[in-house]
Design a protein around this nucleic acid. Structure first.
Length: 173
DNA sequence: AACACGATTTCG
DNA sequence: GAAATCGTGTTT
């Protein structure tokens, strides 16, 4: 049975969606129907053109274009010459926001988890609401978590580098 | 056309 | 502490 989140869930503000994703299930489905389920344990919010840590703050480019679209799409990008980063676009059309998936119970670290679940540039713009190969399902209530500064974005300066927009499950409940 | 650098990971 | 490694955005 497919209990995936519908569009409405992703249209909320990124500061609502990022923590709400903690503890929920990321589902991958192979062409033969085989499914793998992973539990989200760490997320980070990137919020709008004002947020200097958010790629959308440099404007609408070929890479960031999908963030300006409706919530529920995937924003995938390549960094450091070797890692794919996976983000879930949130908010209504015209409000560029995204949630970086930083950790799964099965693999900690944004670069590691994309390698584990086979995520790459071919998923850029994939719609979690309609895709047959990846989506997210609610798994229950949000587990206990803590918030802290985002990682690797000191270049953004104040006040952005201080925003407690990194969300981390504290207990494997 | 050339250049600088990054929402990271790994190794020493 | 530093290398690995290349797409993207910016400058020439």
């Amino acid at each position: 049975m497919n209990r995936r989140y519908k569009r409405e869930f992703y249209l909320d503000d990124v500061l609502q969606v990022a923590p709400a994703l903690l503890g929920q299930h990321l589902v991958r489905q192979q062409p033969d129907g085989t499914r793998s389920v992973y539990t989200i344990t760490e997320t980070e919010a990137y919020r709008g053109e004002d947020d200097l840590a958010c790629h959308a703050s440099r404007g609408r480019t070929r890479r960031t274009e999908v963030m300006f679209r409706e919530g529920g799409l995937l924003y995938i990008y390549f960094i450091y010459g070797m890692y794919w980063m996976m983000n879930v676009v949130t908010g209504a059309t015209g409000t560029p926001q995204a949630v970086l998936i930083r950790g799964l119970r099965e693999a900690s670290g944004p670069g590691r988890l994309t390698r584990l679940i086979g995520m790459d540039g071919s998923y850029y713009g994939e719609d979690l609401v309609t895709s047959s190969r990846i989506w997210i399902e609610p798994a229950g209530n949000t587990p206990p978590f803590k918030a802290g500064p985002r990682v690797g974005i000191d270049y953004a300066g104040d006040p952005w580098k201080e925003k407690p927009w990194r969300f981390l499950v504290t207990d494997e409940g």
